[in-house]
Amino acid sequence: MNVTINGVARELPSGATVAEAVKTLTETRNGVAVAVNGEVVSRGAWDSTALADADAVEVLTAVQGG
């Protein structure tokens, strides 16, 4: 299945979870937040939330700013 992670097209196995999508970028969970199609997925639900084809996944963290 094809999803976008932070704007980049990626192919993930069918049924891949949010946690697996995050792992393509980082092993860290602390300080990281995820939205799928504009809705926040809380950290506790990453492992149990399956992605669907064409989902847009945003993986954010804190950077210098303000």
């Binding site: 932070n6 980082t26 990281v32 804190a62 950077v63 700013g65 303000g66």
Partner: peptide, 9 residues
């Protein structure tokens, strides 16, 4: 303050 941005590996 900090800003929130896409994670850069």
């Amino acid at each position: 303050t900090v800003a929130m941005r896409r994670l850069d590996p």
